[in-house]
Design a protein around this nucleic acid. Structure first.
Length: 489
DNA sequence: TGAAATGTTGGGGCG
DNA sequence: ACGCCCCAACATTTC
C-alpha cells in the first residue's frame, strides 16, 4: 500500500479514549498549538478527532451494557460539541492499532496525539502505536491526564509503591497540587476532506429488545455538556455535609459524578479544582484519592484484575452456586437492603457507595461466591464502571486486596440497614412490596411475626423472598473457611 | 469504610 | 445498712 491516494493535507490525528470532552484536554490543546505553529506555511496540520470502538484488541476489557449506553450518549454529545467548534468526530471500529494504521495509509497523518492510560491493556496498544509511528516517521505523543498524581512520583522512602492508602494519600497531598485545567478551545480546525465515517447508530450500543435502559434517560444526562449542572447541585448543598450524609442511601448526599468521570466527560483535574475551596471538599477529594490509589495499584500490579493481591488467597476456595448468584443479581435474597441496592443498580445504572460495600460483603462472605462474579456484574450494570475502581473495590471488600477490609470484617445487612436506612425509606423506594412493613421489621421480614407480615400484606416466598441464607451460620462458615486458609499456610 | 463475644462498671431492686 | 444479683451501658478483644 503506497501513498497514491493520499490527500496531501497534513493531519494531526486526535484519538479520543476515556476522555470524551474538549475541556482540559491536553492532546487537543497540543494539536491546536501544532496547527497554529505550522499555519504560516499555509499547510497547518488540521485536526482529525477519532473515536475507535475496539472490541478486538487483546487484554482490554470490553465495555459492559450500561457503559455502552453512556458511551453512546457521550459520543453523541462530543460529536455535537466538536461540530459547534467547526470540527467533526470520525467513528471507526476495529482493533485500535489496525484502525489507526489504516488511517495513516489513507491520509497524510503527521502527528498522533492521545491521552495515556496506566491500564496495561491500553498501554500495550499505545506501545504498538508508538512503534508504528516511528516506522512511518509520525510524531506520536501521549499526554498525562488520567490521574492527579503520577504513579511513578508516589513511592515510599525505600522507593517501593505504597500498599496502604493513608500514607499513599499523605504523600500525594504533599506533592505539588494538580495544575489548573485547560480551557476549552474556541474553534477546532477540521480537515477539508473528512474521511468516511461509520455512524453511531450502526454500532447499536443501546439495548434493543428488552430496553433495560428505559429509566436511564429520566435519571441521567451523559456527556460533557451536562457535567456542570450535576456538579453545581452537589457544590451548592451536599458537599458541605458530605462526610456524614454520604452514608445514607435515601439522601442525595453524593455527587453522582462517577459516570462522567469514568468516561472523562470531566477531567479528574477539573473536578479537583471545581470542588477545591468548598466546605467538605477535603473529604470528597479523599474519595478521589481512593480512585487514585486504585489506579496506582493496578499500574504496579496489573495482574490484580484477576489474581488476588494477597498471595495467600490464591489457595482460597469459593462456593459455586448459580441460584445464589442469580438471587443476588436480581435482588431476591430476602434481605431488603441488599435487594433494594441490587434493584437500584439494575434500574438506575448506579448504586450508592455504602451499599456497594454491603452487597459486596454479602456476596463474598455470606454467599461465599468469588468476587469475580460481583466484579463482572458491576462491570456490566454500572454506568460508572471503571476497571481500576471496580478491581480495587472488589478486592477491598473480599479482603484479598491491598489495604483491604480484613476478611473477617463481615457486614451484617440487617444492622447496616437499621443504621443507614432507619425508616426503611430507601428500601420502600425499590421494594414497593414491602412498603407497608413497619420500620421495626422492614429490615428483616424473615424474622417478623406472622401477624405483622399479614398486616403488611407480605407473604414470604410469594410476594417477597424468604432469606436465602441465615446470617449467623453463613457468617460462621465464612470465618471457618478463612481459619482453614490461615492454617494451611 | 464491622460485628459478635467477652469483660467491666455501676445503679437499683431486694432479701 | 449491707451484700448479692441482675443487667444496662460502655469498653475491649476476638473473629
Amino acid at each position: 500500500m503506497s501513498a497514491k491516494n493520499k490527500s496531501s493535507e497534513p493531519i494531526t490525528l486526535l484519538w479520543f479514549r476515556r476522555d470524551l470532552r474538549i475541556s482540559d484536554h491536553a492532546p487537543l490543546n497540543a494539536a491546536l498549538k501544532k496547527y497554529k505553529e505550522t499555519k504560516h506555511k499555509e499547510k497547518g496540520a488540521t485536526i482529525l478527532p477519532l473515536y475507535v470502538l475496539d472490541n478486538h484488541s487483546p487484554n482490554i476489557t470490553k465495555y459492559g451494557g450500561a457503559s455502552l449506553w453512556w458511551l453512546h450518549h457521550s459520543l453523541g454529545n462530543l460529536s455535537k460539541s466538536l461540530e459547534q467548534k467547526g470540527s467533526k468526530l470520525l467513528l471507526r471500529s476495529g482493533p485500535a492499532v489496525d484502525v489507526i494504521r489504516e488511517l495513516i495509509s489513507e491520509l497524510n497523518v503527521e502527528n498522533l496525539y492521545f491521552h495515556h492510560s496506566v491500564l496495561s491493556g491500553e498501554a500495550d496498544i499505545e506501545n504498538e502505536l508508538a512503534k508504528l509511528c516511528q516506522e512511518k516517521n509520525i510524531e506520536c505523543k501521549r499526554f498525562k491526564g488520567e490521574l492527579l498524581f503520577e504513579p511513578k512520583n508516589i513511592a515510599t522512602a525505600s522507593g517501593t509503591p505504597y500498599k496502604v492508602f493513608t500514607p499513599f494519600w499523605r504523600t500525594c497531598l504533599s506533592q505539588k497540587r494538580p495544575s489548573k485545567p485547560i480551557a476549552p478551545p474556541k474553534a477546532i480546525p477540521g480537515p477539508k476532506h473528512f474521511p468516511k465515517t461509520e455512524t453511531l447508530e450502526s454500532w447499536k450500543l443501546l439495548p434493543a429488545k428488552p430496553n433495560w435502559a428505559a429509566q436511564f434517560s429520566q435519571l441521567w444526562q451523559p456527556g460533557e455538556e451536562h457535567v456542570s449542572d450535576v456538579l453545581d447541585v452537589f457544590l451548592k448543598g451536599p458537599i458541605a455535609s458530605y462526610k456524614k450524609m454520604r452514608d445514607y442511601p435515601s439522601i442525595k448526599g453524593t455527587s453522582k459524578i462517577s459516570p462522567y468521570l469514568a468516561f472523562g466527560n470531566i477531567s479528574i483535574r477539573e473536578l479537583w479544582h471545581k470542588v477545591e475551596g468548598h466546605e467538605g471538599a477535603d473529604f470528597y477529594q479523599r474519595e478521589l484519592g481512593w480512585r487514585e490509589f486504585c489506579y496506582h495499584l493496578i499500574s504496579h500490579w496489573p495482574e490484580i484484575i484477576e489474581e488476588p493481591f494477597q498471595d495467600k488467597f490464591k489457595n482460597f476456595t469459593w462456593e459455586e452456586n448459580e441460584e445464589f448468584l442469580k438471587a443476588w443479581q436480581q435482588g431476591k435474597t430476602g434481605y431488603p437492603i441488599i435487594d433494594a441496592a441490587m434493584r437500584q443498580l439494575w434500574q438506575t445504572g448506579w448504586m450508592h457507595n455504602r451499599l456497594r460495600m454491603v452487597v459486596g460483603s454479602f456476596l463474598v462472605k455470606n454467599l461465599r461466591l468469588h468476587w469475580h462474579h460481583g466484579a463482572a456484574w458491576f462491570w456490566d450494570t454500572l454506568l460508572d464502571a471503571d476497571l481500576a475502581n471496580n478491581t480495587g473495590g472488589w478486592q477491598w471488600v473480599a479482603g484479598t486486596g491491598a489495604d483491604a477490609a480484613p476478611y473477617f470484617r463481615i457486614f451484617n445487612p440487617v444492622t447496616q440497614s437499621e443504621k443507614f436506612d432507619k425508616e426503611g425509606k430507601f428500601i420502600r423506594e425499590f421494594i414497593p412490596e414491602l412498603s407497608n412493613m413497619p420500620n421495626k421489621f422492614i429490615h428483616n421480614p424473615t424474622a417478623a411475626p406472622k401477624d405483622v407480615l399479614k398486616e403488611a400484606g407480605v407473604t414470604l416466598g410469594e410476594t417477597y423472598p424468604d432469606a436465602i441464607v441465615d446470617l449467623k451460620t453463613s457468617r460462621q462458615v465464612a470465618l471457618d473457611a478463612y481459619t482453614n486458609l490461615q492454617n494451611s499456610e
